[in-house]
Nucleic acid binder design. Structure first.
Lengths: 74, 74
DNA sequence: CTTTAATGTAATATATATATTCCATCTGAA
DNA sequence: TTCAGATGGAATATATATATTACATTAAAG
């Protein structure tokens, strides 16, 4: 459940409270999401993507070496 | 909550039952997801991505004209 | 005409995401 | 030192995702 939400939030110069409010969730939920201790719904992920102007892959797809690259050009 | 799960499942020549079992969910849940009447958790999305060998964006990111392209090259 | 695979759908139960409220800690500014 | 913003964390309540079970329809195969 790791993600890039925190780094993109900081890039956008937003506090947890600001991002949470803009996204329509609570600060506590966002805090747990950033810490990777949460399993958010897809709809919530979309909301975060929209506010941060990123795609799902940018925010949530961690390309570790364990995971293969899923052959993006196929 | 639209997605490309069904088309990629058919591309992989899998039945709903086969994909659901491989993913660790029930056929009913997969059926509702494919029909867009569901808000799956991110973990479940990851499982589907893994089995179908696709990324989150490939399976769940619908670039309609309503949604902007989030400036992928920034 | 049966049988079976594939899919849609509904009712209920359970697990868990999310909100709400509250408190603690830290940092920077007055 | 005091105060306010930012964050982490816990307890409880509510909403909803998901499983389970069951039944229906359609199409293909015997």
């Amino acid at each position: 459940m790791d993600n890039n939400v925190k780094s993109y939030r900081l890039q956008a110069n937003l506090s947890q409270k600001q991002l949470a409010t803009a996204t329509g969730i609570t600060r506590q939920t966002l805090s747990l999401i950033e810490k990777g201790e949460y399993n958010p719904s897809l709809k919530l992920c979309f909301s975060l993507c929209h506010i941060l102007n990123k795609t799902l892959d940018q925010l949530f797809w961690m390309n570790t070496e364990g995971r293969d690259n899923h052959e993006k050009n196929s």
